[in-house]
Simulated scan of single mutants.
Amino acid sequence: MKYLLSTLLFLCSFGLTAQTGEISTDSLMAHVRFLAADDLKGREIGTPGNATAAAYILDRFKAYGLSEAGTEGYRQPFRFYSRFFMSTYNGVNLLAMVKGTRSADSVIVISAHYDHVGERDGKIYNGADDNASGVGALLELARYFQANPAPYSLLFAAFDAEEVGLRGANHFVDEPTVTLQHIILNINMDMIGRNDKEEVYICGTGYHPRLRAPLDSLAEAATIKISFGHESPSPTRADDWTHASDHGEFHKKGVPFLYFGVEDHPDYHQPTDDTERIMPEFYTAVSRFIQQSVLHLSRP
């Protein structure tokens, strides 16, 4: 396992630092292959596989040269008790910053959760789409914006414990490492790696219509289908994504959010959510669309 980790880190470092421009399919898929490998056994919070995933993300933050933004370097440890699972958990958020070039006190938090559900009945739930795909995009965005800083500051957050109640994001907004009033937007990515209709949804503009216009313009030029919705008041409660992932905790605090995600597929929370089911071209197109969205929305 140590040999596999060091080898993959080297290969990823070589391939990913070779360019600082367009997000590449090879780079995205290298992240997903590592994070969704059987060796990590589903990245459940508190497990060795989860710790290995965290170490990988931290290595990338360091290699890209991002600034530390946690309470302990890049780390923000937290502890909580879950009445539903009747267990106490120790989690850790991973936080890194790229300072803005013009309005550094204004912060956009770009987030994706790195935990998954682990093993059940002897089967590994690798979580390639949920949410190695989001973390892969997070890392590539971090690499790009470290080399090409935006006017606003960008805080890259890999949250833990999403699968047990959004606890990592909850801890961050309750004890933020930057002043909460300075966070102007959360862009959250959760399941962006595959969709048979080549469609990704953006949830959040219904609450914050001013964010819609620049995204509409980008959507017209996109090679994939960009849809808006899955938020109140239109859908039924079961189809409302307002609190479906970590962005919900920002919304509770009054922070505007945009959530990028696909509709559930048959492998959602199944042991078949594996790397080979990711759609590389679609995944790349979504990641590049998010990159362009950040570029447009991070201008004063």
Rank of each mutant, 00 (worst) to 15 (best):
N170E: 08
R143D: 03
N93G: 01
T177M: 01
A157I: 04
S227M: 12
L141P: 10
I124M: 12
V109W: 01
A112D: 14
I226D: 07
L295C: 03
I187A: 02
I183F: 00
Q146R: 15
A36F: 03
I45G: 01
M279N: 10
N170W: 02
R75H: 10
G100D: 04
L9G: 00
Y81N: 08
V200I: 15
D267I: 02
I290S: 12
P214H: 04
D196F: 14
R167V: 08
N131F: 08
D38T: 00
G204Y: 05
A104V: 08
A30L: 13
V294W: 03
E263K: 03
D240V: 13
E44D: 04
Q292K: 08
G134W: 06
T25R: 10
L95S: 09
Q19L: 03
L4Q: 09
A132L: 09
V178R: 00
K41W: 10
P300L: 11
R83A: 08
G122F: 10
N148C: 11
T272P: 07
L166N: 09
N90S: 13
G165Y: 00
D273R: 14
L211S: 11
I290L: 13
E68A: 01
V200N: 03
H113E: 00
A54R: 15
Q19S: 11
K99D: 01
A169D: 04
L58G: 03
G206S: 02
E281F: 09
N188C: 05
K225Y: 00
A55L: 13
R33W: 02
H269D: 08
